[in-house]
Amino acid sequence: MTIKEKLKKIIVEALNLDDITPEEIKDDEPLFGKKLGLDSIDAVEIVFQVEQHFGIGIKNMKEGRPALQSINTLAAFIEARL
């Protein structure tokens, strides 16, 4: 499983997005746009899940804001630190 596939699976399962499948999340679509409907609490949950699953901390807003734009940006952030 690629990092992108794993991230999509984590997002759907950890955020209880029962009405969407991991495959339906596009790599470049905004995580916090209308389709997924995520909010700031979800952002903190994603930070927690990335730490849990990849051992990589997103330490502050400066790191988090660009990293949490999409699956592409989040995967790139993780790959650069593995």
Partner: peptide
């Protein structure tokens, strides 16, 4: 196991 900076906010609430 993880120390408190990394607690799930959903779990906490």
């Amino acid at each position: 196991t993880e120390a408190d900076p990394f607690c799930s906010p959903t779990q906490f609430s």
